[in-house]
């Protein structure tokens, strides 16, 4: 074939570029296959290790505070500041979340532990409504070592340090592990929302994202 030298040069360039793009794509593909879903949607299991290096210690627990009900929740790393309201249990025995009409609110189980008191205080918020993200949309991106603050009705703030972020399948759900305290003599906090895969047939998520934290400081607000 009597091609001009110029055309042959262009051909080489094209082939080289195509190979480079192909290799890049294969590399990206392989990376995605091994690393799994993004930080916003953790796979089932314990993703806490994705935060601080495991060797680095968390702060020591703070002595539990005098009891006071919560009024607001602040998570600086998520840019979140939300009102907290007391709720009871649903007929099925879960903490009742706020109605979807107020997707920015966070529910606290009012018949359980108050945030800052000994035991595990439970806070629940929606990850999304039927149309849009809601207050706990980014909850799964919290990592071990992050800080969560609760404003309380007596003017004090209870600061908690995250020690575990888990995705718990609803059909293998251990309420003792999720809702119960992990250590005696500590003031603990649970932040819970939905996560995992959304089952469109059942109109519900398959799992809960559960953030476990413990009291490490106190202040005023």
């Amino acid at each position: 074939m009597s091609s001009e030298p110029r055309t042959r040069g262009h051909g080489r360039l094209l082939t080289g570029a195509a190979w480079a793009i192909l290799l890049l794509a294969l590399w990206l593909w392989g990376r995605e296959a091994t690393e799994g879903p993004s930080a916003g949607a953790p796979a089932t299991g314990d993703v806490a290790a994705a935060g601080r290096p495991p060797g680095r210690a968390l702060p020591p627990p703070h002595r539990p505070l005098p009891g006071a009900p919560p009024s607001a929740l602040t998570i600086r790393t998520l840019g979140l500041h939300a009102p907290v309201e007391g709720h009871g249990l649903t007929p099925q025995g879960a903490v009742e979340p706020p109605p979807y009409q107020r997707p920015g609110a966070v529910a606290w189980y009012r018949d359980g532990t108050r945030p800052g008191s000994r035991g595990a205080a439970v806070l629940v918020g929606h990850v999304d409504t039927e149309r849009a993200p809601a207050v706990f949309y980014d909850l799964g991106s919290l990592r071990r070592g992050d800080t969560v603050s609760i404003d309380r009705a007596d003017g004090s703030t209870a600061d908690f340090t995250v020690e575990e972020v888990s995705v718990v399948a609803k059909d293998r759900f251990d309420p003792v592990r999720v809702y119960g305290p992990h250590h005696r003599d500590r003031a603990e906090l649970r932040l819970i929302t939905c996560g995992g895969e959304y089952d469109r047939d059942r109109h519900s998520y398959r799992a809960n994202v559960v953030v476990s934290a413990y009291l490490t400081g106190s202040g005023r607000h």
Binding site: P37, D111, V127, R131, F173, C194, H203
Partner: peptide, 28 residues
């Protein structure tokens, strides 16, 4: 003292229904 707080009510036992699916992230 709030430190001596006990559970007033029963402990929750069921998973939370806390999402409407409108912003569900697609599986990989």
């Amino acid at each position: 003292e709030g430190e001596h707080e006990r559970h007033e009510g029963r402990m929750p036992v069921a998973p939370e229904p806390a999402g409407g699916g409108g912003a569900a992230r697609m599986a990989p």
